[in-house]
């Protein structure tokens, strides 16, 4: 079994120590960080996603794998920055103003980072201006917003309107999610996509940056 297969298998098993040891070992033998990411970690995480969609594994399995993925990425990231290798894309993510629910947004952010995106997590209770300002200053590809309350959903529209006013609408893609949010609502407010769950967010983000 080659090293990439081993990394992928360890990742699927949520074996954080195993992933770290194998990534270090691959680096020691001269394998490029980008190759480890693209041939070992990302295919492993993709397989986790497939198994989750097929109901072969469940949320805790995915999150254990995601933790292993993050540990692997954390080893590679400084080396990739040093070599000037870009990530898949940059995503500004947060729960909208007035809403303090974090968990759903955190799970989406974890999976997006695991898929190779750089995540700028603004946390919860985020004002519309902060989404736009950060997306512009960080030259982000995507804004991701979460709302768990019907009373906070309208803030998503404010962000879309602000994106229009600032001239970044269409350039920075906007995806939304959360329990009361629907595809119809996304269409109504002019968001680019509604994501039912974290896996859908990963697929959608990949499409937005042309990686799918």
């Amino acid at each position: 079994m080659d090293i990439f297969q081993q990394i992928g298998d360890s990742l699927q098993n949520g074996d954080t120590d195993g992933v770290q040891t194998l990534v270090r070992s691959a680096l020691d033998t001269g394998v490029k960080p980008l190759e480890i990411l693209n041939s070992g970690l990302i295919p492993g995480m993709n397989r986790v996603g497939e198994k989750f969609r097929a109901h072969e594994i469940f949320l805790p399995d995915v999150l254990l794998a995601a933790r292993a993925m993050h540990c692997g990425i954390d080893l590679l990231k400084p080396l990739m920055i040093k070599e000037g290798i870009p990530n898949l894309g940059k995503i500004v993510i947060g729960t909208v103003r007035g809403d303090l629910h974090d968990i759903g947004k955190n799970l989406v952010a974890i999976l997006l980072k695991g898929a190779g995106f750089e995540i700028i997590d603004l946390g919860h209770d985020v004002p519309p201006e902060k989404f736009i300002k950060t997306a512009m200053s960080e030259k982000a590809n995507i804004i991701g917003m979460s709302a768990l309350l019907t009373t906070t959903m309208p803030v998503m529209k404010k962000v879309v309107d602000l994106a229009r006013a600032e001239g970044i609408y269409g350039k920075v893609r906007i995806m939304i999610g959360g329990a009361p949010v629907t595809a119809e609502y996304a269409r109504q407010i002019g968001a680019d996509a509604y994501c039912f769950d974290g896996m859908k967010a990963v697929d959608t983000a990949r499409q937005f940056v042309g990686q799918n």
């Binding site: 949520g14 949320l59 805790p60 999150l63 254990l64 995601a66 933790r67 993050h70 540990c71 974090d102 968990i103 955190n106 799970l107 974890i110």
Partner: peptide, 17 residues
């Protein structure tokens, strides 16, 4: 729960949530 997510213990954080 927030602390567990901050230290990347996602599965336990989600389970506790």
């Amino acid at each position: 729960i927030s602390r567990l997510f901050r230290v990347s213990d996602f599965a336990l954080g989600a389970m506790l949530d």
